[in-house]
């Protein structure tokens, strides 16, 4: 049962990542691409969690935690750059 649920989830998350990649590729504006990248980070959290459920291990939780905690900081840096140019004022 959980196997089928896993494969469906894998499929959906993978589709989400493909769509992110598409948005990243075509843009059209820079914020579009940035948001696409950020969403790709979020989706990869899902990917890692699904993977750990599949393997029944806890080893990769920290990876997911790190993405959740720090992944947005690159986005912040790029956004700040777009807004102010200088990211540390």
């Amino acid at each position: 049962m959980i196997g089928i649920a896993l494969w469906i989830s894998f499929f959906l998350v993978a589709m989400a990542i493909v769509l992110n990649a598409y948005r990243l590729l075509v843009g059209p504006s820079l914020p579009d691409r940035i948001i696409a990248l950020d969403t790709m980070y979020v989706n990869s959290i899902a990917l890692i969690i699904l993977y750990t459920i599949w393997l029944s291990t806890r080893v990769y939780f920290e990876g997911a935690l790190l993405i959740a905690m720090l992944g947005f900081i690159s986005t912040v840096a790029v956004c700040k750059y777009l807004l102010r140019g200088d990211i540390i004022e």
């Binding site: 990769y60 920290e62 990876g63 790190l66 690159s74």
Partner: peptide, 26 residues
């Protein structure tokens, strides 16, 4: 790295990625 059983490398790569991005933006 995570997929092929190298959690340490995955963690390192993720944190380095963030620092690199900040550095490059600067």
């Amino acid at each position: 790295f995570a997929r092929f059983s190298a959690p340490d490398l995955a963690l390192t790569q993720l944190s380095v990625e963030v620092v690199t991005m900040i550095l490059l933006m600067l």
